[in-house]
Design a binder for these strands. Structure first.
Lengths: 249, 249
DNA sequence: CGTAGCTTTGATGTAGGTCAAGAAATGTGG
DNA sequence: CCACATTTCTTGACCTACATCAAAGCTACG
C-alpha cells in the first residue's frame, strides 16, 4: 500500500519459483500477480480436474498440495506427481487440450483459475513469462521421467528417500522448506500410491530410515537427520530439477 | 517424377502418422517432405543424443527403432520409451533446450536431422503442421505417463502384454503392423529394461503368454493369437494413444 | 568355425505384498 | 473440553512374484 503500485518482489509461490529460474521485471511480476488473481478454495479429496476433460483453463496453486493420478481398471491407482504451491495444475490441458489424468487436492487448497485466454494474453504482454512457464512445464516432465526411473529401477528404500529429497528441493524454491526439513501433509498411503508400494511397506521403510538416523517423517513433519547420507541412499541427483530452461517460447 | 511436383499423399512414416490425426494439404505434405529431407544412417548401439546435451536439432526416424533411456549411478538403466519410424527423437531438446535422457538406436536407423530453425520455419509456413507436431509431442508424454503406470501398478504379465499392444497400435499408424502382428527388433533384455524386469523374467512371461495362446514373440516377430484376450490380460485401454490433439499451436 | 549375444530353463533367495488387528492421532459434535 | 468416530500409523505372520545366479542350447556373424 505504501509507495507506487508496482511489484518488484515475488508475491506468490509461483513468482518465487519462476524467479529462481530467471530474473523477472516489475512488469513481469505485475502480469503474474494479475494472472494469479481469482483465487478460490478446493476441498481435500474432491477432484479438481478429471481424465478426458478438455478444459480451457489451468490452476495455479497458492496454498495446499494436490496429486495427479491415473486409475486402473483393476481399481488401483498410480499417482504421477504431487503439486505444491507455485505449481500448475492441468497446464497441459491448456497447451494441449487434453487431460489424461485426474487431479485431486491432498489438503485444502487455494488455487487461481487461469483461462487459456488469460495465459496467452500474459504471454504476449511479457514473452519472458512464456519462457518461464514453459520452463516450469518442462521441469514437470523431467520429474515424471524421474518418477518412472524410480518405479522401474529403484528399491523401496531408494524410492522413499528420493521422494523426500525431491519434495524438499521443490519446496525450498517456494520457501516452504529449509535445511532441516519441511511440513508434509501426505499420508503414507498416498506415498505408497506414488511409489508403487503398499502403505505397510512405506511405513516399514520410513521406520528403517528413522532407525538409520537418516530422516524422520512423523506428525506431518519431515526432518533430515543426515541429509548427505539420505542423498547417498537415494542415489539422488538433482540435475533434473535444475536444468536449463527453454530459450524458445 | 511423373506429373506436377506436388505431393498429395504421405511419403514418410511421419506424414503417415500425422495424417491419422489431422487432414494435411498438399502444401503441408511438401513442407513435411522438405523437413524430412537430409536423411542419414545411425549405427545400432551408438548413442544419437545424450543426457545434458543442449542440442539445436531433433531427428525424425525414417526407418529403424531407437530407445530413450536414463542410466542410474548404480549402473542399471531404465528405458523410458521406444521410438519407431515417424517418431521424433529429442523434440523436447529443441522445444525446451534440454535433453534429460539418452537416445540409442536399437537397430540400424535412418533419420533426418531437423534443426530448430527448419522446424520453426516449417511451423510458420503451415501452422497446421505446428499443431500436428505438438499433438505428437503430447502423445509422447501421455505414453510416458502410461509407462509410469505400468511400472508402478501392473504385474509382469500385464506389463509385457501392454507393451506388445502399445507397440502394435503405434506401428499400425505407420503401416508397420497389421491385425496379426508385427516385426519387433527388440531383445528380451531391452524389453526388460523398459518394463523394470529382468530378461529372464521377460522370457518366462513371454513363454507364459505363448502357452496361454495369447501372443507369440519369436525370431523378431510378434504374432497375436488372441488379441482380445491379450487386451483383457493387459487391461489395455488405448485412449491415451488416441487423444484429441492441441488446438493451440 | 569360433566367439559373442540372445534365449531358454532350473534352483534358490528375498523384497515387498497381503491380511489382520491393535495403537495413535485427528477430527467432530455436544 | 470431553466422548466418540474415523482415519492413519504400526507391527506381526505368512506368502508370492520376481530377482539372482548359473549353465546350456541357438543364432548369427566375422
Amino acid at each position: 500500500m505504501a509507495g507506487p503500485n508496482i511489484r518488484t518482489l515475488p508475491d506468490s509461490p509461483l513468482a518465487q519459483k519462476l524467479t529462481a529460474f530467471m530474473a523477472l521485471s516489475a512488469g513481469d511480476f505485475a502480469v503474474l500477480s494479475n494472472i494469479h488473481r481469482r483465487r478460490r478454495p478446493f476441498a481435500a479429496g474432491v477432484d479438481m480436474v478429471h481424465q478426458g476433460q478438455t478444459n480451457q483453463s489451468t490452476y495455479v496453486i497458492a496454498s495446499g498440495w494436490t496429486c495427479s493420478y491415473k486409475l486402473l481398471p483393476s481399481g488401483g491407482r498410480q499417482i504421477v506427481d504431487f503439486q505444491i504451491p507455485g505449481d500448475f495444475v492441468g497446464l497441459r490441458s491448456v497447451l494441449f487440450r487434453t487431460m489424461d489424468h485426474n487431479v485431486q487436492p491432498v489438503t485444502a487448497v487455494t488455487a487461481s483459475e487461469v483461462t487459456e485466454h488469460e495465459l496467452l494474453d500474459a504471454f504476449q504482454q511479457t514473452p519472458r513469462l512464456a519462457t518461464a512457464v514453459l520452463w516450469a512445464a518442462s521441469r514437470d516432465e523431467a520429474m515424471v521421467v524421474e518418477h518412472l526411473v524410480s518405479l522401474g529401477r529403484r528399491s523401496a528404500r531408494e524410492r522413499v528417500a528420493h521422494l523426500l529429497l525431491e519434495l524438499h528441493a521443490r519446496l525450498r524454491l517456494v520457501g516452504l522448506s529449509d535445511k532441516s526439513g519441511f511440513a508434509c501433509p501426505l499420508s503414507q498411503s498416498l506415498m505408497g500410491d506414488a511409489l508403487g508400494l503398499t502403505k505397510s511397506h512405506v511405513n516399514r521403510v520410513l521406520g528403517d530410515l528413522r532407525k538409520r538416523g537418516l530422516a524422520t517423517f512423523q506428525n506431518g513433519q519431515v526432518t533430515f537427520e543426515d541429509y548427505d547420507g539420505l542423498v547417498a541412499v537415494a542415489g539422488f541427483d538433482r540435475a533434473y530439477l535444475d536444468h536449463e530452461g527453454p530459450l524458445l517460447a
